[in-house]
Design a protein around this nucleic acid. Structure first.
Lengths: 95, 95
DNA sequence: GTAAAGTAGTTTATATTGTAAACTAAAATA
DNA sequence: TATTTTAGTTTACAATATAAACTACTTTAC
């Protein structure tokens, strides 16, 4: 009846991030922070969880002397998102 | 961009319960336990949270000498579910 | 040149939440 | 009358989430 929901994606901030990355493919820390209204600390933690799971990669560089963190979704991340969305459908139908 | 998701509904077991109750209107503890594969303890806790929030009512009676717990969704519960589903759409579109 | 303010994050301490295990209480069964 | 079963509830611990504090460096202003 109800399939288990991937606990990594069943969280508001991480789901927002993945949702954004699915369409943009790549995004900077500041962009994700703005779009999600997350605090930097929370975003940092959740990005690392997504990276640990292999759903995104995190690249660190510098731009104009400042550190720059760039995130990219992986094929596993895309698949996980698709599976999550599909599993969720059953919960939302209410039939 | 991303609306906040009702934290009471953004949890697998509670969402399953509400999803079931939206269509059945009324359901017994045992029925919910079977359909959701939850442990009795977990279900008991989560039902009480939904009741505290006014999303369901819990009626206690007896059937064949055994205690019987029956749950029913409230108008607030239905509204909350509808709002949750609508808010979630933005996360799932990935566009 | 150095003090203060700003950028871009990370770490950590605490609060919140989730859940399995232990428990209650009564009924059925052997 | 002891044991098992039904139908849950309570509680203690584990996992999760997040705000606040911190790191490390840069820019700006005096």
């Amino acid at each position: 009846m109800f399939k288990d929901l991937d606990p990594l994606l069943h969280q508001q901030l991480r789901l927002s991030v993945i949702s954004l990355l699915v369409s943009t493919k790549e995004a900077e820390f500041g962009f994700l922070k703005d779009k999600t209204n997350a605090t930097a600390g929370n975003l940092s933690v959740q990005l690392n969880k997504l990276a640990d799971a292999g759903y995104i990669t995190i690249a660190k560089s510098f731009r104009d002397n400042y550190p720059l963190t760039t995130c990219k979704i992986t094929p596993q991340g895309i698949t996980a998102f698709e599976n999550y969305v599909s599993a969720l459908q059953d919960y939302l139908k209410s039939k």
